[in-house]
Structure formats: C-alpha cells, structure tokens
Nucleic acid binder design. Structure first.
Length: 359
DNA sequence: AAGACGGGGGC
DNA sequence: GCCCCAGTCTT
C-alpha cells in the first residue's frame, strides 16, 4: 500500500467481502433515476453538478428539463447564458450553471465535444473539483477514482471508525487515500454509487437504519454502538440575513422595472426587482433614492405583503410619475421596464419569483 | 484555512 | 424562527 495512514485504517478490514456486499446491495436497491438510464458522460456530469448541495428529489425535474433543452454538449455550448440560468432558476448556487456552461464550451472547443476521461483534463474544467471528477471518471468511464462527498465521508467514518473532523478540508484527503485501496477495481461505478446511495438511504445523518444495513457486519461503529457519534464534524457558523425592501416600480403602461445583478457574487447575472436595504432608507427617503438611482420620479402607493425569505422582503408598490416606457432611455444599462408577461423570460431568484405571484 | 455561495427540510 | 446540509471557488 502506498499510503501508510490508509493502510493502518484498513488493517484487518475485509475489503473484498465489503465490496461484494455493497455492490450487491446497490445493484438490487438503487433508485431509478433519470441520469442512471445510461452512462452518457455528459448526463453524468450535469447530474453531478446539479446534485452538489441539492437533494435528489429537487434535482429530478430540473435534470429532465435541462436535458430536453440542452441534450448534448454542443447544444449547451451554443446556448445563451441567460437561457442556461433560466433553466437553473430556483436550483440555487448559480455559479454552478455558469461554470458548467463555460466548461462545456471548453469541451466542445478543445475536446471535440467528448468529456475528458482523465484526471488532469477533467479536473481542469470549471466547476469540476475532486468529487465531481471522481464521480464522472468512475460512473461514466469505469475508472477506479475516489468520489468523496458528504455521504461517503459519513458512511466510511462509521464503517471504518475514522474520527477525523470531516468539517476540515484536510479530511477529504484521508478518505480519498482509503478509497484508493478500498475501491472495487472490477466495478468502481457501483462501488462509489453504492457508498453514496447507502449514505442517502440507510446510513443517514440522524438515526441510521443499521438493522437494515447491507454492510452492518463490516461496520466498526455499529459493533461498538457508536454510529450516532460519527462522523465528527465541527459546527458551522451561521450566516446573517439582511432585510431588503423590493420595489415594484411601474410606468404608465403597467410595465415593471427590473435590473440585472452584477456578474460576480450573490445571484450573479440573475434579474431582480430593485431593492434597498431596509435600514438604509425610510419611506420618506425612498423617492429621493430612486430619483438618484434611476432618474425617475415615483409615487409610493402602498406597501404590499411581506415575503419571508433570504431577503425577507417587504414589497413597496409605486408608480412612475413622469412618462417613462420601455423605449425610453431614462434607465441605466442594466435596468429596464418590461411587461409582466416578459418577466417569464428572465432568470429570477426564488424570492423574486414569489414576489411575482403578488402582482 | 476560512468564507461565500441558495434553497429546502426538520423541529 | 433557527439549525442543518456540504462541493467548488475565492480570498
């Protein structure tokens, strides 16, 4: 064995029997999922990106629609970014979509539309980190490469009693080293997917179903009754939310003002209703603020409903006083009046989709 | 090594 | 309401 620490962890472990039990269980019990119908590397890639930080049930309809709209790397590479973001609307972590789009263009340009089958080229693609690289290599290309996600770390920390803090970035290296020894060379795809499927269905974070577990007899944590105490993970810090006021600014044609967000940071390149941090401006100042920002006079009509979400919006409804329509140049480059119907074409954050329902 | 990056779900 | 979830990129 190359790695001493991995060798120590696997001391006395029945690797061959574990592989056999895990793979047998996976082949019998795996969920039927749209991206498991074949081994198309493009589908595996798209599904793995969508599945980052996102539950299977949430991903399924997005994946199906995405594949109808962009069936091949070429189709995705040819698409406008706004269309790609629209297809990603509501899924969150939108840099995943922008990176995937960029990487697919790279694949079409430099690899003739064929997803690379080696660590070096695959890992160099935008948005493809160590996990996704391993998942594509093993699932699409049957290559014995580790794919360490949260499920895998949880399962293996229990089975092998690994007490590393999986909240630390360094922990992933330990698990990768272990898996390089542990992975089935005959069926790395079923092995990696089996670990993840086990983590999703049986070896769950809270109250794992150990009595139904196909690898119970291999599990050191179960043997010692410590499955509830693993994995060890330092608590993450909570993030603060800032309340905003969303402004529904309408012109005399009933069109509403929207603007494009910056191309970096939160919800990059998505569209939104203009917003003001709630603390910064009171009801009286908002007219001045809008005048300075957009060069238009408005009359505040009413405060609509409150929407509780990331932005905990309060919606203020307002009407433009002076003539200002979609053809006017009174608004800056990234802000436009559009008809209510046209809003369907723009990628909006979920919180703003909810506002739309109030209109 | 730590923080940013969404949205959904459990309680 | 508050906490948890957990891949990749950025700083």
């Amino acid at each position: 064995m190359k790695n001493k620490q991995a060798a120590n962890i696997l001391e006395g472990f029945h690797t061959a029997a574990f592989q056999k039990d895990l793979i047998h269980w996976f082949k019998a019990e795996q969920r039927i999922l749209p991206w498991r119908k074949d081994q198309d590397p493009y589908k595996v890639w798209v599904s793995e990106i969508m599945l980052q930080q996102t539950k299977v049930d949430t991903v399924i309809p997005y994946f199906n629609h995405f594949m109808e709209q962009f069936p091949t790397p070429q189709a995705l590479a040819d698409a406008e970014e706004q269309k790609v973001l629209k297809a990603w609307e509501g899924l969150g972590y939108y840099s995943r979509a922008r990176n995937l789009h960029s990487a697919v263009k790279e694949v079409v340009e430099h690899y003739d539309g064929i997803v690379p089958d080696n660590e070096k080229e695959l890992g160099a693609l935008k948005g493809v980190g160590p996990y996704t690289r391993g998942a594509i290599l093993s699932i699409a290309y049957d290559t014995p490469s580790p794919a360490v996600d949260g499920n895998v770390m949880r399962v293996l920390s229990r089975v092998l009693m690994i007490e590393e803090d999986i909240g630390k970035p360094a922990a992933r290296k330990i698990f990768e080293a272990v898996i390089r020894e542990l992975i089935s060379k005959e069926d790395p795809s079923s092995f990696n997917q089996g670990l993840m499927e086990l983590g999703a269905l049986v070896c769950t974070p809270k109250s794992p179903s150990c009595l139904l577990c196909p690898v119970q007899e291999h599990c050191r944590a179960f043997e010692e009754g410590k499955e509830q105490e693993l994995p060890i993970k330092t608590s993450n810090k909570k993030q603060k939310t800032i309340p905003y006021v969303a402004l529904l600014i309408r012109n005399e044609d009933g069109e509403v003002l929207i603007q494009k967000r910056p191309d970096k940071g939160l919800l990059a390149n998505l569209w939104e209703f203009p917003m003001i941090p709630l603390q910064e401006v009171n009801r009286e100042q908002v007219t001045e603020w809008i005048k300075a920002q957009y060069g238009i006079e408005i009359e505040l009509r009413a405060s609509l409903d409150h929407i509780k979400h990331t932005f905990s919006h309060i919606i203020w409804d307002m009407e433009v006083q002076e003539a200002c329509t979609s053809s006017d140049a009174c608004i800056n480059d990234a802000a436009y009046f559009v008809t209510k119907e046209a809003l369907d074409d723009y990628p909006f954050p979920v919180s703003h989709q909810k506002i739309l329902k109030h209109m």
